[in-house]
Design a binder for these strands. Structure first.
Lengths: 223, 223
DNA sequence: AGTTGATTTAAACGGTTGTTTAAATCAACT
DNA sequence: AGTTGATTTAAACAACCGTTTAAATCAACT
């Protein structure tokens, strides 16, 4: 973490990533950040235009680093089988979200994203456009290929959200999980197992969706 | 909403449910609540011991009402087939979480629970013990029955979280979803479709988990 | 050395927060 | 009518927030 940064601007950014990650945008105060960075509060408003300006830069850098370190295709060529591409997507997603080299899960910087969901700041729309939307499109295409031709786009969208929702849950609902299953060790230590579970579960889910659509496209499914 | 409550205590509780639901524990202010209830700020500290006391009572009442209106078994007898019990669980869960008679999804009182995940208040542990833990146990039993005998408990737990995670995602990640798929109408209007999707997807997921465990309990699965 | 412009600082500003104080009001009973 | 105790109120309190101001410091160039 401490890279012994010399410039004040960099020191502020590093401290802000830490404090914003731990407490979120609203709860974090620029005085805490200034103290952690060893600078005056006014220096923050001088280098960035204000609290929101600093936060936007931190969030943008966080997303950028995460998606660079864990690319969603994991170096796989786009012509690889859809199941392989799904595995790459899920594994990189879990590692990016929960891994210590990534956002570190609920106890790390991923909490920033969790808080961003709880109440979005003006910075959310930007990072969605820059980073999240392209990856959502990528996953939708994988799912559509797995579902096969002639399947309604909204079905692919629902499966997409089912996949992402599983991974997100482990990052977002950590307080619940530790209260509900305290015997279970933290997810951060079993990321690959989690990714494999999500992959298998989701492949099975997609298969069953295909079945239900081809067998009975309209009613609840015959006996 | 306005039930023309006479007692100040009830008026405060009603207003607090509204304001806490819209803004969360920290962002909501007792002055907003006092104004909405038409009482003085000091009255809140008189009847409840403070902001946290009021919040705890509101949260407890919210959970209690939700689980009463949408019981997780939907009146099904406990000896019914596991698949039916899962359907009841998922449908009641989605309706409770997203339905207008329930917690109203992200734009309603469910946001309170979302914020409680983002940063838990001291009131979370209580409602988990009172309401959530029993229902988690119920779902784990259903999943274990679907998985069949001789399956590791942690596999059932993972499937349980996969199911709940899908539903939760629609409530927690609403800001993301509206940014990513603005053409899609709000989930609150398609609850039954969502529940059916989650049910089918999850049944397929559980099936595939069973397959993977019986075929290759240890490696990544054959060709 | 002296000037210039960018950077950093201490201090204060205006506003909001949860909570408390002490006085005023109300209802019920003697 | 008068007393008592619970309730409600206006007002103040102390702490904190993000931001701004104006002066002090620094680095670079003439």
């Amino acid at each position: 973490m401490n890279e012994s940064l010399t410039g004040t601007r960099e020191r502020i950014l590093a401290a802000a990533a830490e404090i914003f990650g731990a407490r979120g945008f609203k709860a974090a105060t620029i005085r805490q950040i200034a103290e952690a960075a060893g600078v005056n509060v006014a220096a923050i408003n001088y280098h960035f235009k204000g609290k929101l300006g600093l936060y936007t830069e931190v969030l943008e850098a966080l997303l950028s680093e995460g998606f660079t370190r864990y690319p969603a295709d994991m170096g796989l060529c786009p012509e690889a089988p859809a199941a392989q591409r799904l595995e790459a997507f899920v594994r990189s997603f879990c590692n990016r979200l929960l891994g210590p080299e990534g956002w570190g899960g609920y106890h790390g910087k991923a909490r920033l994203i969790v808080k961003e969901m709880a109440d979005p700041s003006p910075a959310l729309a930007e990072v969605v456009d820059h980073h999240i939307r392209p990856h959502k499109r990528m996953l939708v295409e994988i799912v559509q290929e797995l579902l096969g031709p002639g399947v309604a786009p909204q079905a692919a969208l629902a499966c997409t959200f089912s996949i992402v929702g599983q991974c997100f849950y482990y990052a977002m609902a950590q307080p619940l999980l530790t209260l509900l299953a305290p015997e279970r060790e933290d997810v951060e230590t079993r990321i690959e197992e989690l990714a494999e579970h999500v992959l298998i579960f989701s492949l099975g889910g997609i298969d069953k969706i295909v079945d239900s659509l081809s067998v009975a496209p309209g009613d609840g499914g015959g006996p």
